[in-house]
Nucleic acid binder design. Structure first.
Length: 278
DNA sequence: AAAGATGGCAACCGCCTTAGG
DNA sequence: TCCTAAGGCGGTTGCCATCTT
């Protein structure tokens, strides 16, 4: 049995809010506040809307402190910087931008920043990774970070079939996290590790003892990942253009190997072990 | 000028977390 | 401690405006 809906969808209006509805909601909230209960609010206010819809309309559009209009370059820089550090945690990013909502930031990222930066930052991924990831030519790489950072190298020939039943063969490049040492590594130098993967569910996990950032795509049981060794982590004031890292990449089967996303620390520990063994 | 493609963004969906009984 | 309902959040959808052919 599924979760019960928050309201009877056959009895509430959906779609774009009319000016009259906006005014009704604003008037009600100005007089009474939310009362700590959005679900009950529409009935009290005389609106034929779902409580969640009212909350969203208020928080994303009607609040008096909402900043409408185009994002500034400074805001764009903040978004890029934070996205790089923490991934798609839009509410956290938006909290650093007064007057902007998580929805604003998310839309701005998806419609403007992502495309803009994809166009300007080339990326390289091992050929064994079969996802539709943008590739760059070898000539586009530089070696400045390679000289300083530990470089992981392994031949693509070292890919092996896994004892796990959900693995595919070694021609696809799909590997299991349990056999992570067989993934193909390729030193890459690029400017913004978030863009090595397609998909909208990137996340990161960074702490002081593990200066790595991780991206993955979660729309498939087999998930391409990339691990950036961020030498600049913790250095204040870095810009996107200055941001560089080494990358290992491959396909990580997350569900079967580790369960929930929150366990990505396990992957980090494995990858750290790999780094130490190279 | 018209039709299709693309972009932008408001709104919805559904899962996860939290708070209170 | 458990259960339930509401809040919060990220991902996705769908509509409308604009652009391109």
């Amino acid at each position: 049995m599924g979760r019960s809906p928050c309201c009877d969808k056959s009895k509430v209006k959906r779609g774009t809010w009319s000016p009259e509805e906006d005014a009704t909601l604003i008037n009600y909230l100005n007089k009474h506040g939310t009362g700590g209960n959005w679900i009950a609010l529409p009935q009290k206010a005389g609106l034929r809307r779902c409580g969640k819809s009212c909350r969203l309309r208020w928080l994303n559009y009607l609040r008096p402190d909402i900043k409408h209009g185009a994002f500034t370059q400074e805001e764009a820089n903040i978004i890029c910087s934070l996205y790089n550090r923490i991934g798609s945690r839009w509410s956290v990013i938006a909290s650093q931008l007064p007057g902007r909502t998580d929805n604003d930031v998310k839309n701005y990222w998806n419609t403007k920043l992502k495309k803009k930066l994809m166009a300007t930052h080339s990326v390289s991924i091992p050929p064994t990774c079969k996802s539709s990831i943008e590739t760059a030519t070898a000539a586009s790489r530089t070696t400045t970070i390679s000289d300083k950072a530990t470089i992981f190298r392994a031949s693509t020939n070292s890919l092996t079939t896994s004892p796990e039943p959900f693995l595919t063969d070694n021609t696809t490049g799909l590997v299991n996290a349990n056999a992570i040492s067989t993934v193909s590594y390729e030193p890459v130098n690029f400017t913004f590790p978030r863009f090595i993967l397609e998909g909208s569910s990137n996340f990161s996990s960074v702490n002081n003892n593990c200066p790595y950032s991780l991206s993955h795509q979660n729309s498939s049981p087999f998930r391409p990942f990339a691990l950036g060794i961020d030498e600049n982590y913790g250095v204040n004031g870095i810009t996107m253009d200055e941001y560089s890292c080494e990358v290992v990449s491959g396909i990580w089967s997350q569900d079967e190997a580790f369960g929930a996303d929150s366990n990505n620390a396990d992957l980090f520990s494995i990858l750290q072990g790999v780094s130490q063994s190279h």
